[in-house]
Simulated assay, not measured.
Amino acid sequence: MTALRRRKVVTMADRATMPRNGSSSVLWKAFDVLETFSQHKRVLTLSEVARLSGLPKSTVHRVLGMLLEVGAVEQQEGGFRIGLRMLSVASCSPEGLLRDAAMPHLLDLHKAVGRTIHLAVLQGTDVLYLEKLHARNSQSSPTDIGIRLPAHCTGVGKALLAHAPADTLDDLCSRPLPALTPRSLRVPAVLRRHLDRIRSTDVAFDHDEASVGLSCVARPILVGGRAVASISIGFHSDEQVDPALIGVLGRTTTAVARSLTARRDYHQYPSTPI
């Protein structure tokens, strides 16, 4: 079977300028509705979905009806929620395979270091979090499973950007870099130099760049020279990172890469665009 050509990930900004005609319009609106739900607001009323999506109530009512029929959303007391069918569909993705292969090693790492652990992949110029294991008494952070953040503002994202295709970096550096904190990297030339250093060591740091007071060290999971994901260990910004953390993190990313390669269904993974 001929491989599909890799396509650029469509961002929210891109979607706002794309034509929406006929059946494609219905599909866009369905995703507009689905994306109103979040980890912080898992149950929404029809009025809330309309307000958050910017769609008319009549349109939202029609789209929700379609999504209810196929099980993409479910109705419960107090409103609507994402349906379990969406979890079943998502589990079939290559990222589901990656998470399954990584989980035993993430749990071992979490037990060994007792700190917050993240597993993430690159999606366009954003980083998407697939897993988060919390440390006890960890402070609030902007990360959670399914959350996307600008990759250059995070340790996991920079570890992946250092191995990203040239067109991804060119796209990112062709416009002003968004910032999450005053310490986020904002100048494209500075980011490129930063990524050059990371590429030579395969160790990336985030110092107050995604959230003030929080830092992390991250390393990529390399399979066949390709960074398929990355793992980070979090720590408070007033702490000095223990070099031993970098070593145990490296052993974990190597173990995950070996587990992925050993999977019988792994051959499907490398050709899939992240």
Score class of each variant (00 low, 15 high):
Gln139Leu: 05
Leu44Gly: 11
Thr125Pro: 01
Glu48Pro: 09
Ser232Val: 11
Val223Pro: 15
Asp144Lys: 05
Ala72Lys: 00
Met66Gln: 04
Gly78Asn: 15
Ser138Asp: 13
Arg99Leu: 08
Ala30Ile: 00
Phe235Ile: 05
Ser259Thr: 03
Glu209Asn: 11
Thr59Trp: 00
Pro243Met: 02
Tyr129Arg: 09
Thr154Tyr: 10
Lys41Glu: 01
Leu260Gly: 08
Leu172Ala: 11
Pro176His: 15
Ser93Asp: 08
Val113Gly: 02
Gly146Cys: 13
Gly124Trp: 03
Gly124Tyr: 07
Ser237Val: 10
Val33Met: 00
His40Lys: 04
Ala227Asn: 15
Ser230Arg: 05
Val10Asn: 09
Phe80Cys: 05
Glu69Pro: 01
Leu87Gln: 10
Pro182Arg: 13
Ala210Phe: 14
Glu209Ala: 06
Arg115Phe: 06
Gly234Phe: 06
Ile221Gln: 05
Ser25Arg: 13
Ser184Asp: 03
Ile246Arg: 06
Arg186Ser: 14
Val223Tyr: 11
Thr261Ser: 11
Leu249Glu: 06
Gly224Asn: 12
Tyr269His: 07
Ala13Asp: 15
Gly83Ile: 10
Lys29Gly: 00
Gln39His: 09
Leu107Ala: 13
Leu52Gly: 02
Leu44Tyr: 05
Leu97Met: 13
Glu35Thr: 14
Ser237Gly: 13
Leu180Ser: 15
His207Asn: 12
Ser53Met: 04
Pro56Ser: 12
Arg5Thr: 12
Gln268Arg: 02
Val9Glu: 11
Gly78Lys: 15
His134Met: 07
Thr17Leu: 13
Pro182Thr: 13
Leu27Lys: 00
His236Trp: 01
Gly78Leu: 15
Trp28Tyr: 03
Ala257Trp: 09
Val248Ile: 07
His61Glu: 02
Ala151Ile: 04
Arg20Gly: 04
Leu119Gly: 04
Thr36Tyr: 02
Cys216Met: 14
Ala16Cys: 12
Ser271Pro: 00
His105Ile: 06
Ser184Asn: 12
Val190Ile: 04
Ser47Pro: 09
Gln139Ala: 07
His118Thr: 08
Met86Val: 07
His118Ser: 08
Leu4Ala: 12
Leu185Cys: 12
Thr2Ser: 04
Phe37Glu: 07
Pro142Glu: 05
Asp242Met: 09
Leu214Thr: 09
Ser88Lys: 11
Val49Tyr: 00
Ile147Ser: 04
Val121Arg: 04
Gln76Met: 14
Leu222Pro: 11
Gln123Met: 12
Glu239Arg: 07
Pro270Trp: 11
Pro94His: 06
